[in-house]
């Protein structure tokens, strides 16, 4: 039986009224999505954790100070804060991620990183870790659309508006991102779960 899931806006309302458990639910609901998005931009575990903290500090202050706009959706707002902080981090340090050409030329700043994963199976952990590396190796424009659509849950229309391209270009970038990832996974012989689930 499907459990009743309280909506984000209901949780925000409860939190505004002092319910800290509501905030804990929101945090647990989106912490991995926000963290992965930041991590894929900054490519450093410690920096990503700092920026995750900074993101939620902004969320806490905005809601507690009564400045949260009820009309918008919570997740896109949260992801915008995280995305902007991650990009600002590079601008401040003049360390914007290596620009990669549309033809998929290699990036120079691929990092090997220590994992702090909760998965219990080593094979899965390795696969997920490698997949995140492969996402980082995608050309910037493709990686951006993939992150915006998959992790930030923006529609292709919203992505097109946000990045100043047509919806067809946004879709094309997503297509290349998925095709490139598939090719790279095959190249590295990464076995993925072959079970197809409904979308």
């Amino acid at each position: 039986m499907e459990k009743y899931r309280i909506s984000d806006s209901q949780l925000v309302s409860l939190y505004k009224n002092g319910n800290e458990e509501a905030f804990e639910q929101l945090l647990n609901r989106y912490k991995a999505k926000v963290f992965t998005t930041i991590y894929l931009i900054v490519k450093d575990n410690y920096v990503a954790e700092d920026l995750l903290q900074e993101t939620f500090v902004k969320v806490v202050r905005t809601i507690k100070e009564g400045r949260y706009n009820e009309e918008g959706k919570f997740l896109p707002w949260l992801m915008r804060i995280a995305h902007n902080l991650a990009i600002d981090y590079f601008r401040k340090d003049k360390r914007y991620p290596t620009v990669v050409l549309e033809d998929g030329s290699k990036v120079l700043n691929t990092l090997q990183f220590a994992e702090d994963s909760v998965e219990s199976i080593q094979v899965q952990r390795d696969m997920h870790s490698k997949l995140r590396e492969l996402i980082q190796e995608l050309p910037t424009a493709q990686r951006e659309v993939l992150m915006m659509r998959h992790y930030m849950e923006m529609s292709f229309q919203e992505i097109a508006e946000s990045t100043g391209v047509s919806i067809n270009t946004a879709l094309g970038r997503m297509r290349y991102a998925l095709i490139n990832l598939r090719k790279k996974m095959k190249q590295y012989n990464i076995a993925y779960d072959q079970n197809i689930y409904p979308r």
Binding site: F35, T36, M127, Y192, D193
Partner: peptide, 18 residues
Amino acid sequence: KEFALIKKDLSRALKQPS
């Protein structure tokens, strides 16, 4: 099928903070 498999893996490749 190929796109669906990658989509599923992308969702499972989420990284957890400490």
